[in-house]
């Protein structure tokens, strides 16, 4: 799996590409851990190019989300392919993740949340 990372309006956006499984899930957790250590706690993951996800990949996302909560940050997801969305629904993880149809909507939600505060 490949990660590309960029900043937009204070949100760190990661584009994930490839399979999200045991090995790449561990790599993702390490990558996000470094972002947290750099005080970057508003993180968005664009999953548009994730071609495959299994329970190990889901576990990595859950771990990342829990770490974000501990650090009073946020983790959002967007652009889930149909089969990825299906796995989120059957595992009920769609209830605990903030999932947006598009990256733009997800990133906008951070500024809207800041205004609301």
């Amino acid at each position: 799996m490949d990660f590309t990372t960029r900043e937009e309006n204070g949100v760190t956006i990661m584009n994930l590409e490839g399979r999200l499984d045991l090995a790449s899930g561990s790599a993702l957790k390490e990558h996000v851990k470094k972002l947290f250590e750099e005080e970057k706690t508003s993180i968005h993951l664009n999953l548009e190019n994730v071609e495959f996800i299994n329970s190990s990949g889901l576990g990595a996302l859950v771990s990342t989300m829990k770490e974000a909560r501990i650090r009073k940050g946020r983790l959002t997801l967007s652009n889930l392919a149909n089969y990825v969305q299906e796995i989120f629904e059957i595992t009920q993880l769609s209830h605990i993740f903030e999932i947006y149809p598009t990256e733009k909507e997800a990133v906008n939600s951070y500024s809207q949340a800041a205004v609301a505060k």
Partner: peptide
């Protein structure tokens, strides 16, 4: 549990 990081594999195999 919903926030568990593992334990979903068997269910996915069956489904």
């Amino acid at each position: 549990d919903l926030l568990s990081e593992g334990g979903r594999g068997i269910d996915l195999m069956e489904l």
